[in-house]
């Protein structure tokens, strides 16, 4: 994204800890989020994501560790107005008129009335919500109130936007609308923390991801890097016909045979080129040769395997 800003992190967590009476909700987590990034904060339910976010939004104080916001020690009183937070469990006053409510929430974030009114009109225009001003939230559908919630989160041009499961309950049209806005916000220099356990959305949207489980960070890196690190040397080879008798000298083994293509694993100490060479020597007609990278979902199942929480990922694909 804005690579000239990359050297300057918007948020740095150093050895953050938060213990509750019965559990270590966040247990020594450090991470760095660069400006303009779309950052994926991933983890199963109960991994400590919400506690981590609540510390970043100033709702909880860390027991130990340090938060740096925009290069300085995080001070909730002043920095809170630069953060927009949309919790997973959305909430708005049901009986309050939408225009009034949006104005109220914007003023709580420190905008004055005129600024706020102008911004609201702008966003309502963009999201085609102009006719909503005098309606009440209870008159809106779930998707509509979700859109409204997103607007109230980003209205004050926060430097850091934290979205907890922003797409849950949205139809594909509105999902795309919000997705585009997330890209736009990042392009204009806002940083987005995107907390979810929906892996396919993460792969699509995020630059950088962190996986937490049981209060600890177990993975940190760019999406590409992570996939490279966890690849299993799998390739999909499109051929007319595999040589009939593959013996032990072949540099790969066939895992699955799909229609006109084979999923193979390259043996240790061999390279993709060795495979091609071998097949060419055998006179095989190759029409495709693709590396299969693991999906984030696969990686996460592998990483949190053995814990009961791993199961919730297996269905998502």
């Amino acid at each position: 994204m804005s690579y000239n800003l990359l050297s300057m992190p918007i948020l740095e967590l150093r050895n953050l800890k938060k213990y509750f009476a019965t559990q270590k909700a966040v247990d020594d987590i450090s991470l760095t989020i660069e400006k303009g990034q779309i950052f994926g904060l991933l983890g199963p339910n109960g991994a400590g994501k919400t506690t981590l976010i609540r510390m970043i939004t100033g709702i909880f104080y860390p027991d130990e560790g340090e938060i740096l916001f925009d290069g300085k020690k995080f001070d909730p009183r002043s920095d809170i107005s630069h953060i927009g937070y949309m919790p997973e469990e959305r909430g708005l006053y049901k009986k309050m008129k939408i225009g009034e409510q949006t104005l109220y929430l914007a003023q709580l974030k420190g905008l004055n009335k005129n600024e706020a009114t102008e911004k609201i009109k702008e966003w309502f225009q963009r999201f085609d919500m102009n006719s909503w001003w005098n309606k009440k939230v209870e008159d809106l559908s779930k998707g509509m109130s979700q859109k409204l919630q997103f607007v109230t989160t980003v209205l004050h041009d926060p430097k850091l936007i934290i979205l907890d499961e922003p797409f849950s309950g949205l139809d594909p049209v509105n999902t795309n609308l919000i997705k585009d806005e997330i890209y736009n916000l990042a392009k204009r220099g806002s940083t987005v923390i995107f907390s979810t356990h929906r892996m396919e959305q993460v792969e699509e949207i995020c630059d950088h991801i962190v996986l937490v489980n049981k209060g600890r960070k177990i993975l940190d890196g760019t999406v590409k890097r992570v996939k490279q690190d966890y690849k299993e040397n799998l390739f999909s080879i499109g051929v007319d016909q595999m040589p009939a008798n593959l013996n032990g000298t072949a540099p790969f083994e066939i895992l699955r045979n799909e229609d006109l293509s084979y999923v193979v694993r390259i043996k240790d100490n061999n390279k993709p080129n060795d495979v091609l060479q071998y097949l060419l020597q055998k006179g095989v007609n190759i029409h495709s040769f693709n590396e299969i990278l693991p999906s984030l979902n696969d990686i996460f199942i592998r990483l949190v395997e053995g814990t009961p929480t791993a199961r919730q990922f297996q269905k998502v694909n």
Binding site: G58, I59, G91, L92, Y93, L105
Partner: peptide
């Protein structure tokens, strides 16, 4: 109770 069950409390305590 309304603020808590509507979950608006969490939105507001991230501002005040």
């Amino acid at each position: 109770m309304e603020e808590k069950t509507n979950r608006i409390a969490e939105v507001i305590v991230s501002s005040v």
